[in-house]
């Protein structure tokens, strides 16, 4: 379960974001809607432990995220939170498999190539393990980032505008994939988007424009 209490964040005096209370139950999916600049990404980063809120508490399961030291928070994120971004940020110097090994190495879990092969296969990338990142198509790269996010069986899957740079077909495919994979891995899924095409795919929505 993920919960937020009395959260606020702002640059200097300008308050961008404030949430009094929010709870996301296990395996529950949430869509955060909002225009650019409405604080979607900020909220997602706070949930992911990437950005210190000005005030408030973020609980991931039993862990109070911002009570941890920075190094411990990094490790916690690596083990329990999977992140997917708008652009497929993969490490171009490495092969697909090495990119995934890196996720296991940095999170401190055992480096397990069988697990990598398994995740790649479930995302239809079974053949691509040894390929260089640069040789993959845009859609394939996005699927690799999803594989990377799911690799360590996270409790929470955060996706920031995962469909923004994709065409209609691919956008729907990625949303379906994220939901499917989150369910398969028993993870909560939170997607931040301003993409109207995928709006109807989620029952629970948080609209930041209305705050």
């Amino acid at each position: 379960m993920i919960s937020i209490e009395n959260l606020s964040f702002g640059y200097s005096d300008r308050k961008i974001l404030s949430i009094t209370k929010m709870e996301i139950k296990e395996k529950q999916h949430l869509m955060i809607l909002g225009k650019s600049g409405s604080g979607k990404t900020t909220l997602l980063h706070i949930l992911g432990g990437l950005l210190n809120p000005k005030r408030g508490k973020v609980m991931i399961g039993e862990t109070d995220l911002y009570q941890l030291s920075e190094t411990k928070r990094d490790k916690h994120r690596g083990q329990h939170i999977g992140l997917v971004f708008q652009k497929a940020h993969l490490i171009a110097a490495l092969s697909v498999e090495d990119n995934l090994l890196l996720a296991q190495y940095f999170s401190g879990t055992t480096q397990d190539k069988t697990r990598i092969a398994e995740v790649l296969k479930s995302l239809n990338l079974g053949e691509k393990g040894q390929s260089k990142v640069k040789s993959l198509s845009q859609g394939e790269q996005q699927r690799v980032t999803i594989a990377r996010a799911l690799l360590n069986r996270p409790k929470l899957l955060l996706a920031d505008e995962p469909t923004a740079s994709l065409d209609d077909d691919n956008a729907m495919a990625v949303i379906t994939l994220l939901k499917e994979q989150a369910e398969m891995n028993n993870a909560s899924l939170i997607i931040a988007t301003h993409d109207q095409r995928v709006k109807n795919e989620f029952d629970v929505q948080l609209n930041l424009n209305e705050q």
């Binding site: 992911g48 990437l50 990094d74 940020h89 490490i91 110097a93 890196l102 940095f106 990377r148």
Partner: peptide, 11 residues
């Protein structure tokens, strides 16, 4: 790349 590494758990 560095930011991604951090997000993957690197200190």
């Amino acid at each position: 790349d560095l930011a991604i590494m951090r997000s993957l758990g690197a200190s």
